[in-house]
Each structure stands twice: as C-alpha cells, then as structure tokens.
Write a protein that binds this DNA or RNA. Structure first.
Length: 219
DNA sequence: AAAACGGGGGC
DNA sequence: GCCCCAGTTTT
C-alpha cells in the first residue's frame, strides 16, 4: 500500500469516516433534491466558516427565501439578519443578493452548470464553482478547499502552494471516478483527524504512509 | 490572548 | 504577494 493508491486510501478513510457526519453542503444537496441554487447559497455561507454554523445560517435563510426570486424581494438587512450566524455576514448577504438578482435578470433564474460560467459571479471562486457543479448537477469536478490542499500535500501526493494549483494537479493525477468522493472524505478527515494544527496522527490509520507525521507544526 | 476557521475580492 | 472580512471555537 502506498499513499498514491487512492482507491485503497478511500477504503481506509471510509471506515475512519463512518463516525463523522456528512459535510453540510453535501447534505443540503441531498435533501434539497440537488437544488443547485441551495447548494450555491450554502457554499457562499460556508466560506471560511465551519460546518455547524453554515447549517444554522442556511436554515434561517431558506426559511425566509429559497429561490432567487424570493431573495431579491428581501432587504439587505433582512438577509444579513438571516445569515448572521455564519459570520462575514455583510459580505455574504451582499454576495447572496447580487448573485440572486443576476440569476433572475440574466439567467432566467437558473444556476449555470458550467464552472467557467459560475466563476463570473462575484463571490464565486474555484472551490464554490466545483462544488455547485458536482453537488448541484452531478457533473465531474474537484472541489479543493484548504483541507484537501493541506492533506494532499502532507501525504506528498502533490507538492503545491495554493488550492488552485492542487486542483489542477489532482485533475491530472486522479481518475474522474474519485473526484467527488475524495473531497467528501477529506473534509471530514481534515476537520476531525488531519487538522491544520496538532493533527491526531496517533489516531490516523494512514500515518504509516504519511510524510508529515512528526513534522507537522504543533503548538 | 491569539490563532484559526470547508475562500474570495481588491489592491 | 498581502490584507480584509467577523463571530465563534481551539489552542
């Protein structure tokens, strides 16, 4: 077994992962019948924000309005109040409103299903665009957040400086069938085991193959 | 008390 | 490349 044997890694992590809850945006896409708009809004709310807080803010927002048409009828303060728990509430409320009105005006209230189109919205970067495409439309995409970026580099599976570089590298090195699942697994694994600081290497079943054990920063 | 958090925009 | 967003959780 080698860390570059992704199918084997996935198998190991899946057992590890069973005790963790499904990442929230994934869950939204499931329970919402993969409503791309809800996925997109949840992505915005999840920026730099932990799972549990994203959940609360999303519920509050969708309770008020769950389509772009309904959202543009709200005032900015109403949106801010709804998404307040997620933090960065002013930026996020503004982004949510701008994207919603652009969707209504230029896209017939339909969320685009292409990464390049999604990237044109202000507030949508590669991580969000990939997540909407995969979770909202079931199309292939690799969502590289800081967890995926960090973990892939600790393993030595890639050597990259930014999440965007990591995405490019993974597109080249990883078969499409693993694109979605790797993100899903690594988020849980990254939040609970392979944490940014003081990771729980002693609990990690991949430790014997990892290049960062004992090297990783502790405080 | 300080750093970090499922990024992304502006400069 | 660097700084900002902002309230809550971790260290």
């Amino acid at each position: 077994m080698n860390i570059s044997n992704i199918p084997e890694v996935i198998y190991i992590l899946k057992e590890e992962d069973a005790k963790f809850r499904t990442p929230y945006v994934t869950e939204v896409s499931n329970e919402a019948g993969k409503d791309p708009f809800k996925v997109l809004m949840s992505c915005i709310l999840s920026l730099r924000t932990k799972d549990e807080t994203t959940r609360e803010a999303s519920i509050r927002l969708f309770n008020l309005a769950d389509t772009p048409e309904k959202i543009i009828k709200l005032t900015i303060p109403e949106i801010e109040n709804a998404v307040y728990p997620a933090g960065f509430y002013r930026t996020k409320a503004k982004t949510i409103r701008e994207i919603s009105s652009e969707l209504v005006e230029k896209y017939g209230s339909k969320v685009p299903d292409e990464i390049d189109e999604l990237l044109e919205f202000k507030g949508v970067g590669r991580k969000t665009a990939n997540l909407v495409v995969t979770m909202g439309f079931g199309k292939p995409g690799i969502c590289v957040d800081t967890h995926v970026h960090r973990i892939m580099n600790r393993w030595g599976f890639v050597q990259t400086k930014t999440p965007d570089e990591t995405e490019i590298a993974l597109r080249r090195k990883l078969d499409k069938e693993y694109w979605i699942i790797i993100n899903d697994l690594l988020v849980c694994y990254g939040q609970n085991i392979c944490k940014p600081i003081s990771p729980h290497c002693s609990q990690c079943r991949l430790a014997q193959y990892c290049k960062a054990v004992g090297v990783t920063r502790k405080r």
